[in-house]
Amino acid sequence: MENNIIKEIKEIKKEVSPRPEWVKQSRALLLKEIAADSRPATLGIFDYSRFISQLFRQYAFEPAVVMLLIFATFLGSSLTLNAAFYSLPGAPLYRVKIALEKTQLALIPGEKEKIELKIEFAQKRFEELNKIARQTDVAPEEKTQQIKEAVAEFKTNVAAISTHLNKIKETIKQLDENKTVGQDKDQTVMMAISASAKTEELIKSIDQTIESLSETEKAEVQEIVSNVIKSAQEAGQSAQELKDQLSAEGEIKGAATSTDQAVETPVQSAGTTTDNTTQD
């Protein structure tokens, strides 16, 4: 019954409306009346900013709007992060990706985790280089620039690994001076050797990728690549020195075998990763 009443009331809309001749007449009369006090106006930037601020003030605190803003911020940040994650050197978001990696590195606590992360980043740079090398729809100059940037980033990562290994060497020296023998030292050495092996494997793979580049591209990155190899050799040397020192001391008798295993396994896994990436 109530619904019927409402329906009937809504029907009145059709029945009650002003007379068309009066509508016209009144419109003209009113416009004539305000004519003396009016002037044509257009809205400027100031008006629009006032309009936006008014809208914001009115709706900003409505729960639905707040929820929408939170959702948009969340979605926007995840999309940006996702886009940054897949970006290649030369892309605007690539710097964001590198900055995020640096933050991740700064936040991670242990030395072992830090060096693992540094190796992971170097592997990423290698994968990026492979992707760029496979690109066919990019202008040659742009591609060369991207390759240059990717190799330069790779160099930074390898140099960071080398510095880290030197730091480990210093720590081992200190442990020796303090006559500290034990699991800590063994583990640190194992970690250094494993890192060096992985780096070496990466250098081999990147060398193959560089070989596949055109002569112009090769010429552009030659100097950086030789610097990378130098850094990697330094890292390998540091790791080898540590291994020799410990073998001579016979301190890691039992651990020696496990150290060798530790070296083997990561090298193999790095090799597999590289193979997979190349197949992509």
């Binding site: 009145i12 809309k13 009650v16 409306s17 002003p18 509508v23 009144s26 419109r27 009113l30 416009l31 305000i34 004519a35 006090d37 009016s38 002037r39 044509p40 106006a41 809205l43 008006d47 006032r50 309009f51 008014q54 809208l55």
Partner: peptide, 29 residues
């Protein structure tokens, strides 16, 4: 309405005509 209001504040006769066309019938009713 908000945009119309901004124009009305500037004494725009077109905005007034627009307001009239928009609200005449409901106000009359």
């Amino acid at each position: 309405d908000k945009l119309l209001l901004l124009k009305l504040k500037k004494k725009d006769p077109d905005a007034f005509a627009q307001l009239y066309d928009l609200y005449l019938t409901p106000i009359y009713r």
